[in-house]
């Protein structure tokens, strides 16, 4: 019996009788991070990192949640379990499971570059590695985030000079806070949509240092904030709320912006290529660093990526179940 198996409810550990990021209610769930396609309601018991816990409580309410720190080892039934930094968003973890000397790592979502906000990714040596492949094609190649920051700030400064409000669309958990740390406060004020400001508040309360922001609530008078940049979830970019800001430009920050077709479908003015997932070389680097021979590919260009890994000498397979039907939240 494998230490981890793939079931219709999610990744399951028979020795410890628990699931990892299950997508149906189960008695015991280990959660890699707080994104909605990984942390779902209705579980009998939750285990996650202490850094991920505040956001999970904020989103899922009063759940039976126990926490661990990175690296701390727990014995659950016949399995010893530990959480290791995944670098994806603050508190995100890869989960290491060892049963009778066989080591598996379920990496959830991860990225290998240091974003300056999340605890940086740490490779974990294992025999079996479960990896995402959101951007598992050689056409995805990220630039240094300082370069992207320069592009975003130049665009913002241009908007401000032209008397326009700059709307930057991004996901509320992770991407928004990462962008906050990249924006140049010298250009103007940073306004935030409620959905983003709520997450900011949770992170500030747990001691994460974020720049000053102003909540763009119903009482805010846009003309009192000339030259501002507004961070908002993509769904809010084309709303009555956004329109009251008058002349504006909209941009969207996501790894998908690397493809011109998708950039144009978003029909904003600009697309900035910045992702909390690994690019092609990041995926290969992470996989090599685990030393694992067996790779399980989920979430993304699974068939293509697994074929490439097989040809390159790994024992790779596509995880048979469609995990995470709801990719809207962090497929970025």
């Amino acid at each position: 019996m494998s230490a981890l198996t793939f079931t219709p409810s999610g990744i399951y550990c028979p020795a410890g009788d628990f699931y990892i990021d299950p997508w149906r209610p189960v008695p015991r769930a280990l959660i890699t991070h707080g994104h909605a396609d990984h942390a779902r309601g209705g579980m009998g018991a939750y285990l996650a990192t202490d850094l991920a816990a505040p956001v999970m409580r904020h989103r899922l309410g009063d759940i039976p949640l126990e926490t661990v720190s990175y690296g701390e080892v727990r014995q659950i039934g016949g399995a010893s379990v530990s959480f290791h930094p995944a670098g994806h968003v603050p508190g995100s973890a890869q989960i290491r499971v060892e049963v009778a000397g066989e080591v598996w790592v379920a990496s959830g979502d991860y990225k290998v570059v240091d974003d300056g906000l999340s605890t940086p990714f740490e490779p974990v040596t294992c025999h079996h590695f479960i990896t995402e492949s959101t951007f598992g094609l050689p056409v995805f190649r990220w630039q240094d985030q300082r370069e992207i920051a320069a592009q975003i700030n130049a665009w913002w400064a241009g908007c401000a000079a032209a008397g326009k409000t700059a709307f930057l669309g991004c996901y509320a958990l992770g991407k928004a806070q990462r962008l906050l740390t990249l924006l140049d406060p010298e250009i103007g004020q940073i306004l935030t949509h409620t959905a983003i400001e709520n997450t900011n508040a949770v992170m500030r309360a747990q001691g994460i240092d974020l720049p000053t922001t102003v909540l763009a609530g119903p009482d805010l008078v846009p003309k009192d904030h000339p030259g501002a940049l507004v961070l908002a979830p993509p769904s809010a970019l084309d709303s009555a709320w956004a329109r009251k800001f008058g002349p504006n430009e909209t941009a969207f920050a996501s790894g998908w912006m690397a493809l011109r077709g998708i950039r144009r479908r978003r029909s904003g003015d600009r697309g900035f290529v910045i992702s909390d997932h690994p690019d092609w070389s990041g995926l290969l680097e992470a996989i090599k660093a685990t030393g694992a021979e067996n790779i399980y590919v989920t979430h993304g260009y699974t068939d293509i990526f697994a074929r490439y890994l097989s040809e390159s000498g790994w024992n790779a397979q596509v995880v048979p179940t469609e995990f995470g039907g709801d990719e809207a939240e962090d497929a970025a």
Binding site: P138, V139, F140, R141, A258, R260, G261, Y301, I304, Y308
Partner: peptide
């Protein structure tokens, strides 16, 4: 792998530019 990537990008010129 190039040929698999091309239909996803949708444009040959762009696929080459990206890889």
């Amino acid at each position: 792998l190039f040929e698999e990537s091309y239909p996803i990008v949708g444009d040959l010129a762009e696929t080459i530019a990206l890889v």
